[in-house]
């Protein structure tokens, strides 16, 4: 049984599906990373993903254009982000709770619109897999890395980009200083509100695209509550990655690979109750984090509203 699990084809299968499964987590968690680095905890990712998934699906269904669908997901994500920013920045609302509110709103509204505008479950032709010439023919690496759809590649390209923006640009510096010490940033003439508006809206856009990556990338359907908890996992992965894009990448891959592994264990018939197999990625994520104790501190101003003195 175990030998079967260790065969080359199974290992390649696990890696390839891990790479694919990590996609929505990457988009959402990188968006959340920017928000948290600027001091905003957004627990509403799941709701943003669901609305993004719905609008991407619906617009694609109506117009036939995947690009318009993707755009719609980004726009609706931005709008949700805008609302979240207004509530948490201007009204200084408790971030965790308002996030739960936005989650419920997105969960309900996406389902409601789906029932009223689409009516029944339908499939669409989503982004097709792109086999990158030459590279996709490589043994092992080809099927693992170079036979995915466009949105998968873009997700991975986002990791170095996010690292660069956060660590090597002025906007990154502003984001980090607003998250660490908003008072000091403010006294240096940085607009805390503007920076947080930017990161929350960007987070919304990426969460919307994360939803699109599901509905018009990997699954080609929409159904109520189709994310079923992925948005919350994405938030958890930001903590796993200690607010760094590379760490988020590691967490997303680990979680997804273990998920792929447990599916394969069931397929090859490892005698383990399926419920316990499904538990594995959750347990392992905690265990891995336990043994690789991270000394990285959370952004000091995380989840704290900012108001100018006087």
């Amino acid at each position: 049984m175990l030998a079967k699990l260790l065969s080359a084809s199974v290992l390649i299968g696990i890696l390839a599906s891990g790479v694919r499964l990590a996609t929505p987590y990457l988009y959402a968690a990188i968006g959340e990373t920017f928000g948290q680095r600027s001091g905003v905890l957004n627990l509403g990712v799941e709701g943003q993903m669901l609305l993004g998934a719905f609008f991407a699906f619906y617009v694609t269904l109506v117009t036939g254009s995947l690009w318009l669908g993707l755009l719609a997901a980004a726009v609706v994500g931005a709008l949700m982000g805008l609302a979240m920013a207004f509530v948490t920045v201007n009204l200084q609302a408790e971030q965790g709770i308002s996030g739960i509110g936005f989650y419920l709103f997105g969960l309900g509204l996406s389902d409601l619109l789906f029932q009223k505008l689409v009516g029944t479950v339908k499939t669409i032709q989503g982004f097709p897999p792109i086999h990158i010439p030459v590279l996709s023919d490589l043994p092992v690496l080809g099927p693992v890395l170079f036979q995915h759809n466009l949105l998968v590649y873009v997700a991975y390209a986002l990791v170095p980009l996010a690292w660069f923006v956060l660590n090597k640009t002025t906007i990154g510096l502003k984001i980090r200083s607003v998250g660490e010490n908003p008072q000091a940033a403010d006294s240096l003439g940085i607009s805390v509100a503007a920076v947080r508006y930017y990161t929350i809206i960007q987070g919304g856009v990426l969460s919307g695209i994360a939803g699109a990556a599901l509905s018009i990338g990997l699954l080609n359907v929409f159904q109520q509550n189709m994310t079923s908890g992925m948005g919350f996992i994405a938030v958890a992965l930001v903590y796993f990655g200690a607010w760094r894009p590379l760490g988020v990448l590691g967490g997303s891959l680990l979680f997804s690979m273990v998920n792929a592994l447990q599916l394969w264990m069931q397929v090859v018939g490892v005698p383990i109750p399926p419920d316990l197999a499904v538990m594995m990625p959750y347990v392992l994520t905690i265990l891995v984090l336990m043994v690789t104790v991270s000394k990285v501190r959370a952004p000091s101003a995380l989840a704290k509203p900012f108001e100018r003195e006087g």
Binding site: G13, S17, R20, L21, L219, M226, S228, N259, Q266, V267
Partner: peptide, 23 residues
Amino acid sequence: VTWTGSFSDVSAAAEAANTHISA
């Protein structure tokens, strides 16, 4: 046979399908 542990997890069902096809 794979069991996803949920009645509603669409993406788990999709990945299970992918796994079956790879197998």
